[in-house]
Amino acid sequence: MATAMVATLERELVLYRRLWKASALSSFLLPLLFVLSIGVGVGRYVDANGGLGGVDYLSYIAPGVLVTTAFQIAVGESTYPVLGGFKWVRSYHAMRAAPVAPRDMVGGHLLFLAFRALLATIAFLIVVGFFGAIHSWLTVLTLPIAALLAVASAAPVTAFAATIENDNYFAILFRFGLIPATLFSGVFFDVNQLPLWIRPLAWVSPLWHAVVLSRSAMLGQAPHPGASAGWNAVFIAGHVAYLGVWAVVGVLLAVWRFTKRLQD
């Protein structure tokens, strides 16, 4: 790995060191609030009706909330911080004057977000583990799933942030990207309960694919119980590949936008 990429990752880590206490606190606090309000509160009614997908409601939503947390960190940290690196702090211009190439800047940023996703996942697992939401050793696979999702969602948003001049565009991104993605990605209910015409919304969202994988890992169940073992293997490969495509295309777009923006 390029030393310059490691150097930009280090800069993010040095910045993060100042915030990590507050960030770690919220990493534990948010899942705890979730568990208490929705998992236990809403869950009481759902579970009284036999749970969801054959498990208690908390166990059903925990894997989805876990990857949603990674998703939100990845997207959030790729909006204002990236635009600011061009417009306000001008840190990318500072790097550009040194021997740091656009791919090093993008790479360092995404590595940092993968790291953040890992931290958040570990904190989350510790909390929900106490409430009995971990059902399988395969749960460790949520770590690479969260990291992959972080890169797959952060990379295109990073490209977007490197393109716009005005932060008003983020409101559009949140309204038409982040919020629908969170609502229709099968975190709180099975997307098969949605009318058929809405389901494609879930299918295109990288979050849904991560939710399916994460739930499968934490419950120790096949992702699509109706299908055969062979088909499930294909589905798993497909979900991972889909996230991979988002990551690769996103990285290419981001490097291209960084290069454009930094050259005149």
């Binding site: 280090e10 800069r11 910045l15 702090v89 840190s91």
Partner: peptide
């Protein structure tokens, strides 16, 4: 970098 200290501004830049 406004959020880094004076010394960190130099040490992070040195890493580049």
């Amino acid at each position: 970098d406004p959020d880094l200290t004076v010394a960190e501004n130099l040490t992070t830049y040195a890493r580049y």
